[in-house]
Amino acid sequence: MALDNKPQDAPLFVPGSWDRPKAGKFIDAPEQGDTSTGRGNRPAANLLQRGVPGVITGKLDELAALARKNSLWTLTFGLACCAIEMMSTHMSHHDLDRFGVVTWPSPRQSDVMIVAGTVVKKMADPIRLLYEQMPDPKWVIAMGSCATNGGPYYRSYSVVMGVDHIIPVDVYIPGCPPRPEALMDGLIKLQEKIQRDAKEGPNAKPPVIAQAEVPQEGLVEPDSTDNAGEDDGTGQTS
């Protein structure tokens, strides 16, 4: 954090200002740390690049990415509660069909796997099987906190702490469950990622998102005592 910023100079948090690039470019700020989300999935090199190595297929890749990102077919893979919100997002109120997203039951013909719900160790093998059945190019969205890192079941004996232990993930959507708007936001981010990956090629660096400079004075440190088991007995209701 740049602490020498005067509070009145640094902008307060404006929603959307820290993750949307200015003028189409991400702000590189390596001294603030790498807040990237990982490389995730990258489509395999296309036929031309495999057949004739060294050929640069610039605009063709971008055109293909444009087509792919606007018709992402998702695998119907609702595991738990997030599936209900995923269904709500597909339905008429928050329509996903307007993004070209169609939910398709077969893994052989789908592009995106939205892992919605808790990944249990018993289910890990089927997930791996399904992921491998999906043809390239494919992407994975981890929806909800259970798929991101285990969520509310982080101490359980039978839960995999996040689906990224099993398959590479492109976009993580936090929430329990994430709102339909959050899922749409995640899909839009995936679309941006698809376009960006095509533009910058398979060796592109993952994006670094600058952090907002929030004034540090005046912030109150949270009380770090553990309240479990202590009861002041004053009879106050929560």
């Binding site: 738990a80 808790t118 249990v120 018993k122 089927p126 079941y153 101490r155 359980s156 004996y157 039978s158």
Partner: peptide, 10 residues
């Protein structure tokens, strides 16, 4: 059992 999260133990 594909969604057994161990809620009772938790």
């Amino acid at each position: 059992g594909y969604l057994h999260r161990g809620s009772e133990k938790l």
